[in-house]
Design a protein around this nucleic acid. Structure first.
Length: 497
RNA sequence: GGUUCACUAGCUCAGUUGGCAGAGCACCUGACUUUUAAUCAGGGUGUCCCGAGUUCGAAUCUCGGGUGAGCCA
């Protein structure tokens, strides 16, 4: 066994010295303070649920977990053991354990991970408790845990040392278990609809499918710069060209942008593509998916987010023109000149660029003034073509595309459209995006000739959808910040003390 | 990027007008064989985020920096 001497430079306080001394005491008794395995027969919840039966049969139970509290009473002591299912009380008694094992118990600290065998009983107050017959130390904890009553509140520590957050703040564990349930529910929904889950490259020679700045990395052997993907869209549409008909990818996306309540540089999205469907069918499916996932996870489609009641069972649909009219009282159907559009934007104090046309200005107004007003679930449909380089033009009005975005509680949650399958138009859209890039828009879409080539072989009419999984999890777990639903949110590096 | 706020013991937090660094929990010593935020008696364990400056004297005032959070862009 390795010697557990504190390193000379390591900052170590009295509390840690005490724990190291106890660890050494175990070693001196020939007991390894760090275990190898401990097969259990139950979790805490199993025992609580089956307590009467276990008690009557005097059955031996075998559990393991972390000591969260110790209440010593001289020759007998109560403690709280926590495993993934929750807490259970355990009882150490000198009569039962004998002098030697009871002395070993005295070397345990809050935070230690132990394995326990014992018999279930109920205390005078009726609490289901395991009377410990034997126990083993599975991992000595050398650092003190945050306090049990107030928990860990320091936001920085909670994010940097999420394991502490998970140990002492039970609601956090629930949130992340629910995150997994949400992702499972999304997969189940799509699998049941015949979608094929696929994996496409994370490292891309061209970062496409969205308007965002990419992270750049370098492949040494090929001696080429590569981008981390900013979307999965263009690869998935290539698969529709290839005849896979219904595909989805659920995975990590990277965008080189700032960090706030709703943005983390890496986040999770799901994108789906369905051949022979248009954006109306995609909206129908999105509506079903949101409601189904909410029911699977919360048991109901009527949820509360940050004090606001939200009914996810129905999503209204409104055109962007109507949404703007409704929110700010400006009717863009009457706008025929750029000057009119600019004066409306000026009046609303919404900034725009000199090269923006009427509909781009309207989109700026929508983005700045309208989105935040869309609290109940709303599909906004009919986006300007100028801001939607991958979507198919509307049949009646080529200035607009058959696109929707879903807003809930003022936040964009999903984006979908009838995919642009005309390679001639797609090429022109990319050229237009290049012009935007030359005008200084670093987020404008890159030219992707390889994708154009794929379209030239023929892309079936296709409906596509993208959902921000993190935002969906925020909504369904009532979390105010995206950092509350990402286990390890990105932060500036700083050594843990 | 701008702006406001926060940073004090392992954790949660006080700290007055600039005058010896505080509390609860945790921890240590002792008592206690059904407690449960156990209780009782005793014990304060600290780079007051970092660095300058002002001052007889700075956790406190000033400047610079760091990290985080909120708001704005």
């Amino acid at each position: 066994m390795a010697k557990h001497q504190p390193q000379e430079n390591q900052d170590i306080n009295e509390l840690m010295i005490v724990r190291r001394d106890k660890m050494q005491a175990f070693i001196n008794k020939g007991i390894e303070p760090f275990g190898r395995n401990y097969p259990v027969t139950q979790h805490a919840q199993d025992i609580l649920k089956d307590a009467d039966n276990l008690e009557n049969n005097a059955a031996e139970v075998r559990i393991a977990g972390r000591l969260m509290a110790i209440r010593g009473h001289g020759k007998a002591s109560f403690a709280v053991l926590a495993d993934i299912t929750g807490d259970i009380q355990i009882y150490f008694k000198l009569d039962v354990l004998g002098e030697e094992r009871y002395a070993n118990f005295k070397l345990l600290d809050i935070g230690d991970i132990i394995g326990v065998t014992g018999i279930v009983f109920k205390t005078h107050r009726g609490e289901v408790t395991v009377k410990v017959q034997d126990f083993s130390i599975e991992a000595k904890s050398l650092r003190p845990l945050p306090e049990k009553f107030h928990g860990l509140k320091d936001i920085e520590t909670r994010y940097r040392q999420r394991y502490l957050d998970l140990i002492v703040n039970p609601a956090v564990k629930t949130t992340f278990i629910n995150r997994t349930k949400i992702i499972q529910a999304v997969r189940r929904f799509l699998d049941n609809k015949g979608f094929l889950e696929v994996e496409t490259p994370v490292m891309n020679p061209i970062a496409g499918g969205a308007n965002a700045r990419p992270f750049i990395t370098h492949h040494n052997a090929l001696d080429m710069d590569m981008y981390l993907r900013i979307a999965t869209e263009l690869y998935l549409k290539r698969l529709i060209v290839g005849g896979l008909e219904r595909v989805y990818e659920l995975g990590r996306i990277f965008r080189n942008e700032g960090v706030d309540n709703r943005h983390n540089p890496e986040f999770t999205s799901v994108e789906t593509y369905q051949a022979f469907a248009d954006y109306n069918e995609v909206m129908d499916m999105t509506e079903q998916l949101i409601a189904q996932v909410a029911k699977d996870v919360s048991g109901t489609a009527k949820i509360t987010y940050q004090g606001t009641d939200v009914d996810l069972s129905h999503i209204r649909r409104i055109t962007m023109i109507d949404a703007v009219k409704e929110a700010v009282g400006k009717d863009f159907t009457t706008v025929t000149t750029l000057e009119q559009a600019r004066s409306i934007a000026d009046e609303l104090k919404v900034p725009y660029e000199t090269h923006h046309g009427i509909w781009e200005i309207m989109y700026q107004i929508f983005d700045e003034k309208v989105e935040e007003t869309l609290i109940q679930p709303t599909f906004v449909i009919q986006y300007p073509t100028a801001v939607s380089p991958l979507a198919k033009r509307n049949q009646q009005n080529p200035d607009f595309v058959d696109r929707f975005e879903l807003f809930i509680c003022g936040r964009e949650l999903a984006n979908g459209f009838s995919e642009l399958n005309d390679p001639i138009d797609q090429k022109q859209r990319f050229i237009d995006q290049q012009k935007q890039r030359e005008l200084g828009d670093a987020e404008a879409h890159m030219m992707d000739n390889d994708f154009i080539t794929a379209l030239e072989y023929g892309l079936a009419p296709t409906g596509g959808l993208g959902i921000g999984i993190d935002r969906l999890v925020m909504l369904l777990t009532d979390s105010p910040s995206i950092r509350d639903v990402i286990l390890f949110p990105h932060m500036k590096t700083k050594p843990i003390e």
